[in-house]
Design a protein around this nucleic acid. Structure first.
Lengths: 195, 195
DNA sequence: ACCGTTCCGATGCGCTTGCATCGGAACGTA
DNA sequence: TACGTTCCGATGCAAGCGCATCGGAACGGT
């Protein structure tokens, strides 16, 4: 088997373990067993557990990025920037079980990043990429007259990301249903529209 | 020494450990050493580690509740409901180091609650209490003409709590400064005011 | 066909963990 | 004063952890 694909295979196993049992469930033995390989293979792919966890973090961020960018149509229609914006933001929400699993892992890493400056830097960069994309969409919506022109796209992008983070926590705790979270996002975006 | 005060003493030690090293740093031995007692004392106070962690969670929630309610003046002036509301919400933000420590612990428990339904229930109840308080303040501001009368206090309280949760994550990751978080909260509240 | 190299499954080691157990100090009571 | 009870510090123990090590399988070059 290929080396990189094995790394991803193990990363997916660790991902599942963290999603089900939290950061403490990410042990080398369980990772190997879940991935269907031996511990030796895990140690070959990752020289230390810290490296393995770091790789899983990148793996998670990549998955999230893919999920978000899948909402952006290939034929980027700038006229539909507002709906693209809504779909993009909705893609960051834990609305269905796979997304919820991803968000549980995200939350575990975020808690870790709060006490580990190195992880915090990685997460900040991930956020920056998303914020740039959101700001871009807001700007496009403005140029086509679908969003209020008095808004600062960058500042508004930050506020929207803050909203989705808060919604995700409420979703994981069961204080928001997928439907209520969707409508909360929708109402928030309505306030940006030109009327 | 009194029994309950010893429990709180140990809980404070565990609190500090979680704040510095995360959930994995909360071991019985470290808790005992940090609290300046022996492991036997810890085992006497808490029959199992799970109970100890649960007690620390209540301890944390109590601390947060006290910090929030300290912002509500004794002579509850309903005319100043909007400023009380802002102070109350600001009290839930990680604006200074002690609050940041508290919020790191909160985040650690929230990540745990995302994979443990029992903890999720405890956290939901804590949120409910805060939401009720916020909704009350919004209602008071409405009756005195300081907040838009077309708002649903309950729904708006939920939205504000979602905002503070998101702001806290951004604060812990270093994507928000205390000042920028304060202004973000302020601008959000301005939108509720009658104009 | 031989061998050097690469890869990986298995095992071992030192350490830490949560929890059980024990021995003695402190204290109220007869 | 002798004793029973309560409390707690110290130690022991089985399990699980990350990591190091080893032996054999697979494979390509000569």
């Amino acid at each position: 088997m290929d080396h990189d694909s094995r790394r991803r295979q193990i990363a997916q196993a660790v991902f599942d373990l963290i999603s089900e049992r939290g950061m403490e469930g990410a042990t080398l033995r369980d990772a190997a067993q879940r991935a269907g390989v031996s511990m030796g293979a895990v140690q070959r792919c990752f020289s230390t557990k810290e490296q393995m966890v770091a790789f899983v973090m990148e793996y998670m961020n990549q998955r999230i990025t893919e999920r978000v960018q899948a909402q952006i149509p290939d034929t980027a229609d700038p006229a539909a920037a507002m709906t693209t914006l809504e779909h993009t933001l909705a893609a960051t929400l834990a609305l269905d079980p796979p997304s919820q699993a991803e968000t549980r892992v995200w939350l575990a890493f975020t808690a870790q990043a709060a006490i580990d400056p190195a992880l915090a830097t990685v997460q900040r960069n991930q956020y920056t990429g998303l914020a740039d994309l959101i700001a871009l969409l807001i700007g496009a919506a403005q140029t086509h007259g679908h969003a209020r022109p008095d808004l600062d796209p960058v500042q508004e992008a930050e506020a929207l990301i803050t909203l989705t983070d808060g919604l995700n926590i409420q979703l994981l705790l069961g204080r928001h249903t997928p439907e209520s979270a969707r409508t909360a996002l929708h109402h928030r975006l309505e306030a940006l529209r030109t009327r």
